[in-house]
């Protein structure tokens, strides 16, 4: 019999990924709330589709789609993650102590994703409500077609930031190599200061609100206009 304080340890060196994910899915009906996954060795799709308020700690680097479509769980990866970590996250948190590859938190609809290091290209692409805090820098085409939610970057942002953005709030402390179509610098209003401050606190980021600039949509491409055809 397990209790809520027990930690279920799963060694991916000896346990098939399928078995791990099945146990996490079945565990939503009861069982241990704390999970520790060791020896991921770059495996893809680790802890995907979890729908329970688990605390999941992954010791080591993971491959693609770590904690994809997460609901409710609090996932911590002590290492780097591959492409699409936290893709379509619905709720809960994903905390990455290393770097994140491309498309981190792509299309995420809720929850919080924290990257202690850098995130590569297309961080927050098509994000739909997720909140992302990257303590390092992000690559090009980040927040492409970003719909809602917030992206905080304590370092620098690559080229074409926020291309074709809708209503996502982007905050960047460092330099921006270039803004994408319809993305402009915007005023940091009180609402945004509160939002940014809350996210910096939640992520434990050593940065001040006043150090950031905000970027968002100029809303010039919201309805097709032939005079803007070259910008689409």
């Amino acid at each position: 019999m397990t209790t809520a304080t027990d930690v279920e340890v799963v060694d991916l060196a000896t346990t098939p990924l399928r078995e791990l994910n099945q146990r996490l899915h079945d565990g939503a009906a009861g069982g241990p709330l704390r999970w520790r996954i060791v020896n991921p060795n770059g495996a893809h799709a680790v802890a995907v589709g979890v729908d329970a308020p688990f605390e999941i700690e992954i010791e080591g680097h993971t491959g693609y789609y770590t904690a994809g479509m997460n609901k409710h769980a609090h996932v911590r990866v002590n290492g780097n993650v591959g492409v699409g970590c936290g893709e379509n996250i619905m709720s809960g948190t994903i905390h990455i102590t290393g770097n994140a590859s491309q498309a981190c938190a792509a299309t995420g609809r809720g929850g919080l994703v924290i990257v202690e290091g850098d995130a590569a290209a297309r961080c927050g692409i098509s994000m739909k409500g997720v909140e992302i805090v990257v303590k390092g820098s992000i690559g090009h085409m980040s927040a492409f077609m970003a719909q809602s939610g917030a992206l905080v970057v304590c370092g620098d942002a690559g080229d074409s930031l926020g291309d074709s953005i809708y209503e996502t709030h982007i905050y960047v402390r460092g330099s921006v190599e270039g803004l994408g179509a319809d993305c402009i610098e915007k005023e940091l209003k009180e609402f945004h200061r509160e939002e940014l401050g809350r996210l910096l606190t939640a992520a434990g980021a050593d940065a001040k609100v006043d150090e950031f600039k905000r970027y968002g949509s100029a809303r010039r491409l919201y309805n097709f206009n032939i005079d803007h055809a070259g910008e689409y």
Binding site: N21, H25, A45, G49, Y65, M69
Partner: peptide, 12 residues
């Protein structure tokens, strides 16, 4: 890899 993820989420 994407398909593998979808299969894992939906238990194959």
């Amino acid at each position: 890899i994407k398909i593998e993820e979808i299969r894992e989420i939906t238990d194959w």
